[in-house]
Nucleic acid binder design. Structure first.
Length: 564
RNA sequence: UGGGGUGUAGCCAAGUGGUAAGGCACGGGAUUUUGAUUCCCGCACGCCCAGGUUCGAAUCCUGGCACCCCAACCA
């Protein structure tokens, strides 16, 4: 399983080069800098694996730093959830847990330094005015009338901003760079804004001015001695500003910002804002809804951390736009679970079978192996009785071509048990099949029948010994491969898949499954991989979440040739 | 009409002047008491397009084209 083929990407090339140049004295420090304004998703996992992976590969370290400069959108719940998710993914930040808010005082001092160097000024323009003065993509902006204030006046005003003498929006601190720059980010960007009345989850009410990301991030990186500051492509335009800040302030080092393209996944959205909307508007049950591409959702769905790490390794790291097929993720969890999950039998759509020639009071304990390729998982006993359930999909009155399950008058093998023959089909007044009468061939336990070939094997559960369960079949959350595609920013909500959750009640599972612990994963033979839900432990029936189906070449065949 | 990026198979993605890795998907076959797994085999005369340089170009040069990102007191 641990066939870790060394990932090969352009960021690693840069690092190898830096190492051979003895840049930073061979030190490697990265960081993962989430804003605690939502839960982490699969796109963050890509970044986490990259940053922590580099630290691990090069004996460096990776800091977990909360980018908590906008208290309006952030809270402690997110701080906790993010730490849990990173840990669960298998990464350790040691004692390198930081908050950008740890640096608020230093950030303030650096701002004073900028003012003293005439590199920053307090601006009285309103937000709308600033926007107007900034110009457009194709037209240069015009200088703010407050741009040439004296150092002393700026110092005084900035101090009074901090002291709470001005209302929200009344003044901001701006960098003095170039209002005509073709790069919008350099047109005197805002450095500090005033925010009264919010309680910051780390600093409480200590501050009423908050630094902006573009100012905070480079300084935080430098203060922590980060060597490689890896972020996504949309910040590429910000790099000149990142460098400008570090060049104009007395920080101990100058980290290198490197950008890579963010992950896009078919049939899902990977945007904290949109995921937040799905939660807030009740389209899903929460951030950890098993349909969500969040780390917590995937965890509850039954994905393993190893599978997610494997996925992140397979998709690569580049600067090109990409939309990864959902099948790649599914393949990763199948591969993990195929190797590790114990096999069990469960009937999702029960159809009763009465085996007429089997004694009514007899219970025969049959041996079943827990894993076909891993003998160390041992065997278990499964009770075989006169009445059993099979899946309705495993019976047809008339067999299509190539169908090898049970048909009227035909034979099929019960997994780990006997060959049975269907003698009679019982229907109700509506013509629905309600039960089957069969007979079993006692000579076929662990042996092929005399003179006949039985191709099919189906799974089953004892009617008297089986346990009732609820099974939730999850499907893709969106029915469009790229829900974001198209102009409307909110169109994605119209592409929600109405059938993303199908709840099956009164399913029957084999008795051994009654002992499962929340979070345990199994392969239900011939059906898929399932996980005992971790949040529904209080209900009287166990709830299993479908993680992913088994590959199903029969279904594919049927789809291609519906007639059979 | 500005700036910054990216174009290699259906989807990811190696490749850094010497004759197109790998994974997923797909197609064919073998094994199988899971139509699973596993195992074989196949899958770019071609690298966005057009010119050019070179003995030789996905890689270098020139000119196009397409797509993505940027005008929060968000990150």
């Amino acid at each position: 399983m641990e066939t870790i083929q060394r990932p090969n990407n352009f960021i690693l090339h840069i690092i190898e080069q830096d190492l051979s140049d003895n840049k930073n004295n061979g030190r490697i420090v990265t960081r993962f800098p989430p804003e605690p304004n939502g839960y982490l998703h699969i796109g963050h996992a890509k970044s986490i694996c990259l940053n922590f992976g580099i630290a691990g590969d090069y004996q460096g370290n990776c800091n977990l730093r909360f980018d908590d400069t906008n208290p309006h959108k952030e809270n402690a719940e997110f701080v906790d959830a993010i730490q849990k998710d990173v840990q669960w993914l298998g990464f350790d930040w040691g004692d390198h847990l930081y908050f950008a808010s740890d640096y608020f005082e230093k950030l303030y001092e650096f701002a004073v330094e900028l003012i003293n160097k005439q590199k920053a000024y307090v601006c009285d323009l309103t937000a709308e005015e600033i926007r107007e003065y900034r110009g457009t993509l194709t037209q240069p902006g015009a200088n703010s009338p407050y741009r040439e204030r004296s150092i002393n006046e700026n110092l005084d005003l900035f101090k009074r901003m901090r002291n709470g003498e001005f209302a929200d929006g009344e003044r901001v601190l701006r960098a003095k760079i170039d209002i005509t720059s073709p790069n919008m980010n350099l047109r005197d960007p805002t450095l500090y804004r005033i925010r009264h009345g919010v309680i910051h989850h780390q600093t409480g009410e200590a501050w009423c001015i908050y630094p902006m990301y573009d100012y905070t991030h480079p300084i935080s990186d430098a203060l922590e001695g980060v060597t490689h500051s890896i972020c996504t492509l949309e910040f590429e335009d910000h790099r000149p500003l990142y460098d400008w800040v570090l060049d104009n302030v007395s920080v101990p080092c100058h980290p290198q910002q490197i950008e890579f393209s963010r992950l896009n996944l078919e049939y899902t959205v990977v945007s904290k804002r949109k995921l937040n909307q799905l939660v807030e508007e009740g389209h899903v049950e929460g951030w950890d809804d098993p349909r969500m591409p969040t780390i917590s959702g995937l965890r509850r769905r039954g994905y393993t951390a190893a599978a997610i790490r494997d996925f992140c390794g397979r998709i690569g790291v580049t600067k090109s736009d990409n939309v990864v097929e959902i099948g790649v993720l599914e393949n990763c969890i199948r591969e993990d679970l195929n190797a590790n999950a114990s096999r069990r039998m469960a009937v999702l759509h029960p159809l009763k079978i009465i085996i007429d020639n089997f004694p009514a009071d007899k219970v025969e304990e049959l041996d079943a192996i827990n894993h076909p390729q891993d003998p160390s998982q041992g065997i278990r006993k499964i009770p075989f009785t006169r009445e059993i359930f099979i899946d309705r999909e495993d019976f047809r009155e008339e067999a299509p071509r190539k169908y090898k399950r049970l048909v009227s008058g035909g034979e099929v093998r019960l997994r780990y048990g006997y060959v049975i023959r269907c003698d009679e089909v019982v229907k109700n007044n509506q013509g629905e099949i309600i039960e089957l009468h069969c007979s079993y061939d006692a000579s076929t336990l662990g042996a092929d029948p005399e003179g006949r070939k039985v191709k099919g094997v189906i799974h089953w559960v004892s009617a008297s010994h089986g346990v009732e369960a609820e099974i939730r079949l999850y499907d893709r959350l969106f029915n469009h491969p790229t829900p974001n595609q198209g102009a409307g920013d909110n169109d994605y909500r119209e592409r929600l898949n109405p059938d993303s959750l199908r709840t099956l009640t009164r399913c029957r599972i084999e008795p051994a499954l009654a002992d499962a612990m929340p979070g345990d994963r199994f392969q239900f033979e011939r059906v898929g991989y399932f996980c005992l839900d971790q949040a529904m432990v209080s209900t009287d029936v166990p709830v299993f979440n479908r993680i992913v189906t088994l590959r199903d070449t029969w279904a594919k065949l049927e789809k291609q040739h519906p007639a059979g």
